[in-house]
């Protein structure tokens, strides 16, 4: 059996199909696979690149904690999370999350949960580079992302 949680933080691109195949390899118990890909937008042509800084070691550890929590909480059979760092140009991949479970709802919820926590607690920071050659601001954290995370912990 493959390891249930695969986490990688890397400069190079990833291949969604290859990662899904790796997660499913030699298993016939999985009934649902949900994938989420986060891409770099061009911001109406103004953005030339995003520069992603990360905290080596903690980035991997934090995403692993989140994935293991998702496994337990939603009964996922497997989860993969890959996050890139360095300079990423519009149209390129930034992040990939794959969640697998016997039925669809857990896989949808698991992928959603992993992304909500990854965005607010995995130590990555984005800086914008513009097509006019100027280096822009660090991207600000959004209240909407905190709210998305908090809905998982809100008391019913």
């Amino acid at each position: 059996m493959n390891a249930p949680v695969i986490v990688r933080v890397q400069r190079e691109d990833f291949d969604l199909d290859a990662e899904v195949s790796a997660l499913r390899r030699e298993r016939s118990d999985i009934g649902a696979v949900v994938t989420f890909s986060g891409l770099c937008r061009d911001e109406a042509g103004a953005l030339s690149a995003l520069e992603l800084e990360h905290y080596p070691g903690m980035a991997e550890a934090e995403i692993e904690r989140i994935c293991h929590e998702a496994l337990e909480r939603f009964g996922l059979q497997a989860a993969t999370a890959i996050h890139r760092f360095g300079k990423i140009t519009p149209g390129e991949n930034i992040v990939l999350v794959i969640a697998a479970s016997p039925h669809r709802q857990a896989a949808f919820d698991g992928a959603n949960f992993i992304m909500d926590f990854l965005k607010t607690s995995a130590p990555f920071w984005k800086k914008e580079h513009h097509v006019d050659g100027s280096i822009g601001e660090w991207v600000s954290a959004k209240d909407a992302d905190d709210a998305a995370r908090d809905r998982w912990t809100r008391k019913p």
């Binding site: 990360h54 905290y55 934090e62 965005k119 995995a122 990555f124």
Partner: peptide, 25 residues
């Protein structure tokens, strides 16, 4: 390499990181 509050004691810390709110994903 684990998140803490500002009230957390730092005794025994090997490495302390300080940074802005995160914007990954």
């Amino acid at each position: 390499q684990e998140h803490v509050d500002h009230a957390e004691p730092i005794a025994g810390a090997r490495e302390i990181a300080l940074f802005p709110p995160m914007t990954g994903g």
